[in-house]
């Protein structure tokens, strides 16, 4: 494409935005709102996943072996545990450590009961797993391993955590997909209105022999510009909303565990790029849909551009 043609197309794209100022502002506003909701859904998803993952990591499976067997890291049992495909890690926990952990979490009365003899606690392996959906199956496999006396696991909690994470993921993805479709319609409608207001220019372009792509490009560019502006504004808005939200929910998060919320800076670049990319995709694709329909309806009309 010639430089002069590119300049013409870009100029036309910007002209469309300026000529339809009100429509452009309203579509930026609605697209901006959609992106804020998409961003909020995404941040909710990553935070809930992070919290659930933290709890899941604490919900370890303890594997015990019979008295009299000397366990140690790297022994046969340890290897057999690690050989299971869903096992992420298996940490050897000597009884002294188990005793210390129990003391740390116990009140003075329990501590008195426990006394100072660590041998009442058995050695064990602390096992974490990869796929929580296969929690029960993995527990069964652990129980079946030779040399294992017993396994302590909280399957009900694991199932609940899995359900929470699964539900939040589904809802968030649903919201994101829905809002993406809404964004497409918004951009598509804006471009339809722009095309209606520019039907004379489109008609002239058709008369003089402009190719369909040459007619389409300024409108697609317009959609992309609207998308980029909305994406940039939405990134800053989501940042602000997120900071306000984590300040308001700080106490609640502390009560849930020791973990705090994920800092926005971890996701800022991703959200910015994602929003701008989403803006470009919705903008150009929404415009493409609108103008494809318009050009198809009017096809090669020369005498009906009014």
């Amino acid at each position: 494409m010639r430089r002069s043609s590119a300049a013409f197309l870009i100029k036309e794209g910007f002209r469309n935005i300026v000529v339809n100022k009100l429509m452009s502002i309203s579509s930026i506003s609605v697209l901006f709102s959609c992106l804020i909701m998409i961003g909020s859904a995404f941040l909710l998803l990553v935070n809930v996943s992070s919290i659930v993952e933290g709890i899941e990591n604490q919900n370890v499976i303890a594997v015990f072996y019979p008295d009299g067997v000397e366990g140690s890291p790297g022994d046969d049992l340890h290897k057999r545990i690690l050989a299971l495909d869903n096992v992420k890690s298996a940490e050897f926990v000597p009884n002294e450590e188990a005793y210390k952990e129990s003391l740390a979490g116990a009140g003075p009365e329990i501590a008195e009961l426990l006394g100072s003899d660590a041998s009442i606690f058995p050695d064990s392996y602390k096992v974490t797993i990869t796929d929580m959906q296969r929690y029960s199956e993995t527990v069964r496999e652990l129980k079946a391993l030779p040399g294992v006396e017993s396994v302590r696991a909280s399957e009900v909690l694991a199932q609940k955590l899995y359900n929470i994470r699964h539900t939040v993921t589904l809802i968030s993805i649903g919201i994101i997909v829905l809002l993406f479709i809404v964004s497409l319609f918004i951009i598509s409608n804006t471009i339809k209105i722009t095309m209606f207001s520019r039907r004379l220019e489109i008609g002239i372009m058709r008369n003089v022999g402009a190719t369909p792509w040459f007619i389409r490009l300024p409108f697609m560019l317009e959609g992309m510009i609207l998308g980029i502006i909305s994406g940039m504004l939405a990134t800053f808005a989501v940042w602000g909303i997120y900071e306000l939200a984590i300040r308001a929910l700080a106490d609640l998060l502390t009560d849930i565990g020791e973990r705090s919320s994920l800092p926005f800076s971890h996701y800022a670049a991703g959200i910015f790029v994602g929003f701008v990319a989403l803006g470009i995709v919705t903008g150009s694709f929404g415009s493409f849909l609108a103008i494809a329909k318009y050009l198809k309806e009017k096809e090669f009309a020369v005498h009906e551009c009014e």
Binding site: R2, F8, I204, F214
Partner: peptide, 9 residues
């Protein structure tokens, strides 16, 4: 406009 629409220099 008629010339630019067909990509004239």
């Amino acid at each position: 406009f008629a010339m630019r629409a067909v990509g004239a220099a």
